[in-house]
């Protein structure tokens, strides 16, 4: 009796293991852990207008990409954002954006460059549109107008509507 119970238990466990092996569906990359992405997001206080005071505005820190659109904040992930000098001294910003969804998305971004004193150094760039097929990445890239005047940048990202 004991043996038969043990055997049937083993058989059941084996069956379950085989079934789970068959039914396992691999999710295609990239897989975005939105909770971890949200936990990594750190907002910074904007420069205060009053000396010694605190700004009531919390925003993404400079040299980062700020998703300004509710509709894509849990759909897109900014993998990297970097900048480098071009041969003529202007600043080239490039950011890799990942579409975490199973659907194509149209997004657009623009960049404001700031001088060393964090004042806008030039007019904000126009919105630049780019397409993100399902579960793929694309690169947003733009350049500053000024050379030495561009010290920081802030990229705004939203869905194209």
């Amino acid at each position: 009796m004991k043996y038969s119970i043990l055997a049937s238990t083993l058989l059941l466990a084996g069956g379950v293991a085989v079934l789970s092996g068959c039914s396992q569906v691999q999710e295609p990359a990239g897989i975005c852990n939105m909770s971890a992405i949200a936990a990594q997001r750190q907002l910074a206080a904007a420069p205060s207008r009053v000396q010694g005071g605190e700004s009531p505005l919390l925003e993404m820190p400079l040299n980062s990409v700020s998703i300004t659109d509710y509709s894509v904040i849990n759909k897109l992930y900014v993998r990297t954002v970097n900048a480098r000098r071009t041969p003529t001294g202007t600043v080239e910003v490039y950011a890799q954006i990942i579409n975490c969804t199973d659907f194509p998305l149209n997004a657009e971004a623009r960049t404001q460059f700031y001088d060393a004193g964090q004042a806008p150094s030039e007019p904000i760039s126009a919105w630049k549109r780019f397409n993100l097929p399902a579960r793929t990445s694309n690169t947003y890239q733009t350049q500053s107008i000024g050379t030495q005047s561009a010290a920081f940048y802030m990229v705004e990202l939203r869905e194209t509507k």
Partner: peptide, 30 residues
């Protein structure tokens, strides 16, 4: 700089702004 109320398949205002801005910035790297 954004799509308007009337939208078609032609080149529209936001496209003009976006393309001229992109070309201008690229020319400044030459």
């Amino acid at each position: 700089g954004s799509s308007g109320v009337v939208r078609g398949v032609g080149i529209e205002g936001q496209d003009i702004r976006s393309m001229s801005d992109e070309m201008m910035r690229d020319l400044l790297t030459v």
